[in-house]
Amino acid sequence: MSDTKLSKDRPPKEGNSRRRVLGMIATGALALSGSALGLLTAVFFKPRVTYGPPQKFRVGKPATFTSGSEIAYQKQAVLVRREGNQFAVISTKCTHLGCTVNATDIGFECPCHGSTYDRRGSNVSGPAPSPLAWFLISLAPNGDLVVDKDKKVPAGTYLEIKA
């Protein structure tokens, strides 16, 4: 009696491959969902916003800047420069120890340890190890200029705005 049952239950030759396929599907699905869950967890742990001062902020309409002006924003440690119809934002945080650099005729100068930078922000002399960063400046839909300190751009990148 047990004999007949065994013979009935024992899988035929082609059943082996089907079993393998089913097993692969199950393992694959489990692995996929496991990795997806892991990914979701990783995404969950990465903060979407932080409570620090906003890295992206508006500095007003382009018309409020006169050509050739350099206006420093102390709190955000950036400087907005307008040359003709071109705009750029340069960091004023010294790359040496983080003092706020001052704009001078030939570029920037750090009051703490005397590092100097040229107008492109390249370190010229003093202990500063690297040039000043340039940040992305763009236009908001209502025409305001937006500075994004999260996005660095190569030095000498200007935003052209046709008046």
């Binding site: 097993g23 699905a29 489990l30 997806a36 869950l37």
Partner: peptide, 18 residues
């Protein structure tokens, strides 16, 4: 085996939906 496959596929579906 069938149950395991169904369960794992269901789990995949739920994870995908989330």
């Amino acid at each position: 085996r069938v149950a395991i496959i169904i369960c794992s596929l269901l789990l995949l579906g739920v994870v995908a939906a989330i």
